[in-house]
Each structure stands twice: as structure tokens, then as C-alpha cells.
Computed example of a mutant assay.
Amino acid sequence: MADNTNPLRRKAIAATTILVAVSLAACSTPNAASSTPSGTTSAPESTTRKVTNAEHEVVFHVTEGKLPALVLDAGGGLSSSYWKDLAPRLAKATGSKVITYDRAGEGESDEVSGPWRVENAVSDLEAGLKELGVTKDVVLVSHSIAGEVATNFVNKNPGWVRGAVLVDANVPDFFTDEMLTAFAPVIEKQKTALHAQPSTKKNRQLLAVMADYAQVHRVFHKLAWPKDVPVTAIVASQTPFADSPDAAQLWRDGQARFAQAGPNRKHVVAENTSHEGIVTERPDIVTGAVDEMLKTVR
């Protein structure tokens, strides 16, 4: 009976598995053809660097170029291969140093036991950028849950980040207490289902992110983006909530509030795009936003 009197709870039930997608995206890499047309000059080759932090290795891929450096961070369940087409396109179009990496538990990086914590993800990124000699003139390009990493990173490291492009990314404004309370039963249902499945790297990472989900995101909700760091928020037209129009609108509203909450912020809607596939469906929008940001901060 309570579900019939609580609109947000009804939205949560309708969304079923969707909230996990907000933080984790889908766990498959989009299929797309190479973005380098036949007969054109290819982008510079990237090199791989392994960085040890807190007794685990994090894998970084670097395409050399000028500063500011573009640091591309994919959504949960997605490795650096998420950027396999966009990274060389950005390197060629902008001439910038381009860095992609696998967060702990993703791609080629080591797994770390225990719940996922954004503080640990920030520490890994800090260690990698220090090792690569990139501790200023950084532009973050962050997708989905990487928006949480970006928000915490810019607050902890003033002076490192010149600007950011958030690609249908998590922003604090969405995770209200009311929303998290309504979605709590969905998270518990997801955890039960995953525990019943074979233990895989993917499932372990999903469970790690869901641990203490409401508590973690209530803390995230209280954060603010620094007013001196320009940011562009690109929103996919389908949002992570393609199966729930009500939840999708709440996501759009949260993104709009974020964009309106401070100076030097832009809000871009990427028409005909999905949450996970946005970088392959409309790479021109992402590339354009990055190019515009580079012109702003150079």
C-alpha cells in the first residue's frame, strides 16, 4: 500500500535495475567502427604505463601531445577501451596529450577488495597523473560514475584541473535523500540477484559499487563543483533511465540544476543518444565540447 502513496517509490519500482546503471553504465563496450577514415593520417600511437598505488597496479594509456592534457574516465563496468575511437580522434583534432586509464577493478587494472570508494579512485588518479608528470593543465572528460571521481578530484586538487566535460555523468544534484530512499529496495534486489550468480570480475565490481550506496551518495549530494573551474555537462537524450520517463526527467532536472548552479557552466543535450553509447553515437558533440573547453582554458 505504501508504494501506491509514494510517487518516488513507484518510479523506483518502474525503473527496476536502472539506478545501478547510473553508477555503473552497462558493462559491455559499445561497438563502433574506427573513427579514422580510410586514406587519412592516423593519430599518434599511445603507450601504456602501469602505476602502483596502495599496493595495486593501475593501467594508464598515454598519447603524447601538448597541454592541457585530456584525461578520459569511463563509466562503471567500462574500461579505457570505451574511448578506443574517441581518444585518437581527440588527439588528432586537438594535438593534446590524451590519457585514458582503467580504474581499479576495471580493464587491465588490479582488483581491490572491499566496497568501492570514490576517495580510492581519486587517489589512484592522483598517483597516475603524478607519475606521468601531469599535475596541472588537466581537462577531465568524465562519463557516468566518473562524474563522482571528477567532482571529488577537483575539490581535493585545486589548481590541477583547468576545466571538465561531463558526459551524461553523475552530478551531486541528482542524488537527493528522497530519491535514494525510494531506490533503496531496488539496490537490495540487485545485490541479492548478483550474489546468486557466479563470482566474476564484473559482478564483484557491481557489488562493490552497491555497498553502502545510499550513504556514499548522500555524501556526494553535499559536494559542490568549484566556481573557478569551467564545466560543460552533456546529457544524453535517453538518459540512463530509458525505461522510466519519470526517472529520466528527474535525471534531466538534476543535470539542469547543476549547470545553472554556478558560473562558467554549460548544459548540452545530445539528441538521439543513449547513456552508454553517447561517445560513439555523437562523438562530434563530445569532441566539440572538448575543443570549446580547450579554447576557453588555453
Rank of each mutant, 00 (worst) to 15 (best):
F220K: 06
R282K: 14
S274H: 13
G95F: 09
G75T: 05
A224Y: 11
L24E: 10
N203T: 13
I13N: 11
R218V: 03
V71A: 10
L125F: 06
S34H: 09
E106D: 11
A214Y: 02
A164C: 08
A54Q: 12
V286R: 01
A233K: 00
S142E: 13
M293V: 07
A211M: 06
A182W: 03
A208Q: 07
V62R: 04
K222D: 12
P172E: 01
A224H: 14
W83F: 15
Q215P: 03
A104K: 01
G105L: 01
Y213A: 08
N157A: 05
A87K: 01
S38W: 14
V149I: 15
D246V: 11
I234K: 00
Q249A: 13
A104Q: 09
D212C: 05
E178I: 10
K202F: 10
G133W: 08
R89S: 14
T181V: 13
K50C: 08
R49E: 13
A208G: 07
R204N: 14
E126V: 14
S46L: 08
L294Y: 09
F258T: 00
R298A: 09
T181E: 15
Q205Y: 11
T47P: 03
A193G: 09
S79A: 12
V139T: 07
A25W: 05
D228E: 15
K201H: 07
A14C: 13
T232W: 02
S109A: 12
G105E: 01
V71N: 00
D253W: 03
I187Y: 02
V186M: 15
Q197F: 09
A270C: 08
E64L: 07
Q238H: 13
E276V: 13
D243A: 12
D102E: 11
D124M: 00
K156H: 06
L294G: 02
V167P: 00
H61F: 09
T29N: 11
T47N: 12
R204G: 13
K227N: 12
E57D: 15
A208V: 02
V51D: 08
K50F: 10
K66L: 11
A121I: 05
K222I: 01
L24A: 06
Q260D: 15
D253H: 10
M293T: 13
L132C: 08
N203A: 13
A25F: 00
P240W: 05
A91T: 04
L129F: 07
D85S: 13
A247H: 02
A289P: 06
P198A: 09
V186A: 15
A193M: 12
A69H: 03
W225N: 00
Y213D: 05
V165D: 05
R10E: 12
V229K: 02
K202I: 15
L180W: 10
A208P: 00
A214T: 14
D102T: 01
A184I: 06
L24T: 07
A93L: 09
V229A: 07
G95S: 10
Q249I: 06
V141W: 04
A54H: 10
A87I: 04
T200W: 07
A25K: 04
T239S: 10
E188Y: 07
A242W: 14
W83Y: 12
S237W: 03
